[in-house]
């Protein structure tokens, strides 16, 4: 198997984070990270970023509910 280089790591970071790698690819990934400090930093920061982006949407406000309900009813009447 061809070993991953840094570009491959950057291209596959979502597949790694989403658990979409075969065991072979995962091994390849780990081997590269063992020897590459730049990619260690890239991956750890990438994962921090993904976690930071995971925030729930705001709830719909009562006013938004009423407005939308009114518009739907108007259009259907």
């Amino acid at each position: 198997m061809t070993l991953f280089n840094c570009r491959d790591i950057s291209e596959r970071a979502t597949d790694y984070q989403e658990n979409r790698m075969s065991w072979r690819e995962r091994l390849n990934w780990k081997l590269h990270l063992l020897i590459c400090r730049d990619c260690q930093r890239f991956v750890s920061q990438f994962l921090v970023m993904v976690r930071a982006l995971q925030r729930p949407l705001p709830e719909t406000t009562e006013k938004e509910v009423q407005d939308q309900l009114r518009r739907v009813k108007e259009a259907r009447s």
Partner: peptide, 16 residues
């Protein structure tokens, strides 16, 4: 060869 031309910069913010 697929190596970083400029290494990824270290972020001050290191937690979410």
């Amino acid at each position: 060869t697929g190596h970083w031309t400029a290494a990824p910069a270290a972020w001050e913010a290191d937690t979410p």
